[in-house]
Write a protein that binds this DNA or RNA. Structure first.
Length: 567
RNA sequence: CGGGGAGUAGCGCAGUUGGUUAGCGCGCAGCGUUCGGGACGCUGAGGCCGGAGGUUCGAAUCCUCUCUCCCCGACCA
């Protein structure tokens, strides 16, 4: 490709509203352009990267036994009503109305459609297992799109669905996909980490996410420094250390005027945070929920949501708290009536806690469960913390940030049952097909690749997904000999199967080098009067500082070798 | 949806106590000088000041409504 003909220009300054690196560099390098909130066009160069990622994914899906198909974006709402997942997706579904006032969903995902498709197609155990997949755009009216391509409303997803007859077969499908996923990220040149995950709105049982580790990641990963335990904080557990046992004392009121936070109260009474009980109020599907947890822990809202099996969960507002008659800062579960109380199991790991007295400026000492209060639900609803012991091996847990670039789920049979996808087993009995689903966000992966691979000058694409492999840069384009050499190299390299971006623009060296660094093509070849004096060119990897001078003689095959060795 | 901010040239911004012709930098077009890390000179094109309504002799500037975009929380590939 000749740079002079390329659609898209590089920008010196990023739009001020781009705040994450991938967003800035992708826009500045002319790879993407925003159309609306969370809606982007891919410019030719960005689309080349996209297609490389897509091809790697497609190859690995095919290799794992997947069969590619295409399902439409428009989906009858009836399918969603049948599957019962409408409430959990709620406002994130874009709904369009046709001329007959019939409502259609812009598919946020395709489990409903594929399950219906399989229902019509698969009848016998002989037809299973199946691994259909598609690479398609999905629509989700996200509460808050952000970070350029990292979180958008129209995005491309590879989604594969597994259909199996039994758990053992599902395990196999799941394993195949996990292997394929690891292969995909590795082939893209992007080190990934697999972690245990919550299954969220998709529903289902086992679930793992694949993360690219970056500072700027939206997710926090908890992992063990000793064993291979790793989980999204949404899901992660840790061993909660019990307080030293004490004899139960009787409840005592203390005045704590003006002291509201755990820290303030604990400091005032000369106890540690883990000797207090924290109260937090939530509203779950419109109902107030009272949450109790040991003072040194924080509530994990995902776990809480799962414990409550609700669709909507938010912290209670001041008004909602007042309405329920709770005294913020001094509330506790003691003596509460007609309110759902959910407790973290940490409340059992100690005695004689300090808790609110349900009246202003007063706390209670020596509160004990279950002597002084009860809870409707007691479960693990705490955020696992770095520094705590690993639930598997007691090793120390650590935390890191990452970007979720893939998610696999064992769905089980709830969708096939609701949508009527049954098969006839060997014994003639009708059974629901066991499902799994496996997604990769392509644009997100592209953006995450940039988050993971950049420097102050710009992007540093891993070779397998770079828009072009080689950047060919003649300096002093009026110099006939330089241009002749460059033109010849361009056609020879192209003929040798190398993807070349040929910077034939009449620009100063500074502009060209800076653009090259910004765009991030892995290998740079410079032809100039200076290098030609010794019948050579300058060759430099984007990732490295040092360049080398290589003779024109045998250059094309030498470059091919360099690219092969490093590809 | 709750809280905070922004819409002026392709991009980044100034101008906002109402006052003539709306500016600057980058980019863009032409000519010339340059040519190994965003070079320089000259000339030039490009704006209903997000939209609608109002106040006024006069509105980018004041008022009302509206749309769009960004940031912080709930969502997720």
């Amino acid at each position: 490709m000749r740079f002079s003909k390329l659609l898209g220009r590089t920008l010196k300054e990023a739009p001020s509203d781009a705040d994450c690196i991938s967003h800035q560099y992708l826009v500045r390098s002319g790879m993407i352009q925003q159309v609306a909130t969370g809606v982007y066009s891919y410019m030719p160069m960005g689309w080349r990267v996209f297609r490389k990622i897509e091809n790697i994914i497609r190859e690995e899906m095919d290799r794992a036994g997947g069969q590619e198909l295409m399902m439409p974006s428009l989906q009858p709402l009836e399918l969603w009503e049948k599957s019962g997942r409408l409430p959990s997706f709620d406002k994130t579904i874009f709904i369009v109305t046709d001329r007959k006032e019939h409502k259609l969903a812009m598919g946020p995902t395709h489990e409903e459609v594929i399950t219906d498709l399989v229902r019509r197609t698969v009848q016998s155990y002989r037809d299973l297992p199946q691994l259909p997949y598609q690479i398609q755009n999905k629509f989700r009216d996200e509460p808050r799109p952000r970070g350029g391509l990292l979180r958008v409303r129209e995005f491309f997803m590879k989604d594969l669905y597994s259909f199996d007859t039994d758990e053992a077969s599902l395990d196999q499908s799941y394993k195949k996909m996990v292997q394929a996923y690891k292969k995909i990220y590795a082939r893209c040149g992007l080190p990934s980490v697999m972690v245990e995950a919550d299954s969220g709105a998709i529903g289902g049982k086992a679930s793992h996410e694949f993360m690219l580790i970056t500072e700027s990641g939206e997710d926090e990963i908890i992992y063990c420094s000793k064993c291979d335990y790793a989980a999204n904080t949404e899901k992660a557990t840790s061993i909660k250390k019990p307080n030293p046992p004490e004899d139960l004392k009787s409840v005592e009121e203390v005045s704590t005027s003006g002291l509201k936070s755990i820290d303030e109260v604990a400091t005032f009474l000369g106890v540690k945070a883990d000797q207090t009980l924290k109260s937090v109020f939530y509203v779950a599907d419109g109902k107030l929920v009272f949450v109790v947890i040991r003072g040194d822990f924080e509530v994990n809202e995902v776990k809480l949501k799962n414990a409550l099996k609700c669709n909507d969960l938010h912290m209670a507002t001041v008004a909602e708290t007042k309405e329920a008659g709770l005294v913020a800062g001094y509330a506790s579960a003691i003596g509460l009536k007609n309110v759902l109380i959910v407790a973290d199991d940490s409340i059992k790991l100690g005695n004689n806690f300090v808790a609110g007295a349900n009246k202003p400026d007063t706390h209670l000492k020596n509160v004990n469960y279950p002597r002084d209060f009860k809870a409707n639900v007691i479960e693990d609803i705490a955020r696992a913390r770095a520094g705590d012991p690993c639930p598997r091996c007691q090793g120390e847990l650590k935390a890191q940030r990452g970007i979720e670039v893939g998610h696999v789920f064992k769905l089980g049979t709830f969708l096939s049952e609701r949508l009527g996808a049954y098969y006839l087993d060997k014994d003639g009995s009708s059974k629901p097909i066991i499902m799994g689903c496996y997604g990769i966000g392509l644009g997100r992966l592209l953006a995450a690749a940039v988050e993971q691979n950049n420097d102050e000058k710009g992007i540093i694409w891993p070779l397998p997904i770079a828009p072009y492999q080689l950047y060919l840069c003649p300096i002093k384009t009026e110099d006939v000999k330089v241009m002749e050499t460059a033109e010849r190299l361009y056609s020879d390299l192209t003929a040798a199967g190398i993807e070349v971006l040929f910077d034939d623009r009449q620009e100063s060296p500074g502009i060209k080098f800076n653009d090259a660094d910004l765009i991030g093509i892995p290998l740079r070849v410079v032809v100039s009067p200076r290098t030609l004096q010794s019948n050579s060119v300058e060759v430099k990897w984007r990732r490295e500082k040092q360049s080398q001078i290589m003779p024109l003689e045998g250059l094309v095959s030498n470059l091919c070798t360099m690219l092969q060795v490093n590809g």
